[in-house]
Design a protein around this nucleic acid. Sequence first.
DNA 1: TTTAGCACTCAGAGAGTTAGAGTGCTAAAC
DNA 2: GTTTAGCACTCTAACTCTCTGAGTGCTAAA
Lengths: 347, 347
Amino acid sequence: MGLDDRKKVVLQAIVDDYVATCEPVGSKSLIDRHDFTVSSATLRNDMAELEQMGYLEKPHTSAGRIPSDKGYREYVNSLMKVDHLSDEEGREIRSKLGESFDEIATLLKAASATLADQTGYISLAVTPKLTSSYLTQLKMLMIEPGKVLVVVVLSAGVVKNRMVRIPDFLTQEQIAQIGNAVEQGLSGMPLSEISLITVATAAKDNQKVELPDALLNQVLYEAYTAIKQADNLDVYMEGKHRMLSLPEFSDTRRAQGLFDTLSHDGLIAGYVDEVTKEDEKKEYMIRIGQEITLEGLDGCSFITTTYTVGGKVAGNIGVIGPKRMEYSKVISQINFVRMMLDEKLKQ
Amino acid sequence: MGLDDRKKVVLQAIVDDYVATCEPVGSKSLIDRHDFTVSSATLRNDMAELEQMGYLEKPHTSAGRIPSDKGYREYVNSLMKVDHLSDEEGREIRSKLGESFDEIATLLKAASATLADQTGYISLAVTPKLTSSYLTQLKMLMIEPGKVLVVVVLSAGVVKNRMVRIPDFLTQEQIAQIGNAVEQGLSGMPLSEISLITVATAAKDNQKVELPDALLNQVLYEAYTAIKQADNLDVYMEGKHRMLSLPEFSDTRRAQGLFDTLSHDGLIAGYVDEVTKEDEKKEYMIRIGQEITLEGLDGCSFITTTYTVGGKVAGNIGVIGPKRMEYSKVISQINFVRMMLDEKLKQ
DNA sequence: TTTAGCACTCAGAGAGTTAGAGTGCTAAAC
DNA sequence: GTTTAGCACTCTAACTCTCTGAGTGCTAAA
């Protein structure tokens, strides 16, 4: 059932050619572009068999062949060789991510931009998954009477803030006290365990100021929603409009379908998460064409990998491009960026 | 030189028809769709004159006419009637912006999303222009030794924060003290007047803790850059990909050119600012086709207006669509959203 | 198993035709 | 002086027809 050696070479050559030209590959042009020791007739036989086995497709009877999803899958799994990044590419990425970033959001934005520039496809970076992280700080800052900025700092280095409204006779001191009490009670607690009840007990156990229960609860509720809101994953996506120059998206309806889906950050983050779980332990995850369960992305391929914060699995970075993608190049680029992120996030 | 009454009606009818169909308008179909009391031959004469005067264009000899930039300009300036929003539209917008927003950024995002949904074009909202606003608060929060979150609050209600790095032996108390000193010295000062020197004198005049000058200056420098960074305008843009379904952007290269330019927030914010200055005192600003000096936007029209915070001129909201835009509808929608923003930002 | 040879297929490019919506112009009517 | 009917003219878009060439599959010989 497996592919014999020559068929493997043929399939590989076809994928390579199609990636380069976006045109169906015929037996003759295959001979021209590669050093085959057999004739075109032999290739034709092989190609017919490869088609029968589902690795190739024909747009129409008298055209050349293009790889099917299964063909790309085989190529990705066992045919392509992931080569090292060229020195120059490495240098370029290094220079773009070289400076020091004080906030994880800024770093991820830069990583995403770099990846998009480098690959020419759509890049994305997702903030660390917070279920695995815990609260380290909670500060409440009075901005004006009745308005408080809640700053939430999480173990993965994520800082989020949210403006909330509170009764306007509360003083900066009272508010700060409550914040401190909650922080003391909850710091180190996994986000998943934080609930309105744990917030309340934390506050009551550690608080020094006396406040009527109803009033206190109101403030605590706001603190709680601020913490919960910090749980949202942010997605930084770059390079979308570059897809418009690819022949596969010259039909604007396809492009629109793609963009439509991509504009829902939540969908994308959720899908990345799903894929990460499915392919646990893999160095990188690849989904090709119909394998992608998101609407509008069935003409694309999706490569993601996971970066770590302080050694723990955290968020994802990835690239979305046409199925006809330069897989090995993209993989080595993603890997390199991942490496740099890991390094910068080690502390 | 002016247009006689019938020519005005003809031009208006042609713009209306072309907006509705995106197809060149001929004399016969004009008669069919409108109640003219004259014959098509007369209209033909009028149309020929309108063309000569520059209000109309022909895609080719035997086609109907389409409005030129000048034609749209005339339409917008004196032909169209800006009608009131339908009750239903008003209700819809009101319901989308009805809830209360604690942060100006959130409110602007919602306004932008509403405008995009409602018009079907590209919407944008720009944060308040900060040159006219002043610092109200500056807080420095130690996140971990060596890392401080600087929170800058401006008079227009804008809250920004930035993580900065400082020597890691400084304590939370010292940092907070410095923050307080700067805040005391600068609060109420217009952003434009804040410089490294004013920051330094503010700190030295109000500070209680004693610190070596070099050390203090390092922290002050970070505070200063955080304040200056708060000066960046943010642009919230929505609905870009909707343009792909318009016939004028079925050519992906046009769409790509547009998207390319739109991805540079700075460019857009700068242009909006420029237009606002040019058309000072106007209720809304309109730029049509070639009037827009941004690359890639010459097939578009751009409508902006200004919202106010606390009664003072502040930021902008706007819509970008094809030249063939439903001007009067969009204008009334923008106006309505502007009104709602003003109301919500009155306090 | 490989290859040469050959008949067959089909998309895409180009040429020719037609239909129809549009124009401008002229001369008569109002 | 406008307005209008009438007419010849123009040009695109759609359709058909043909042709080319790259590609195929099959057969029979090497």
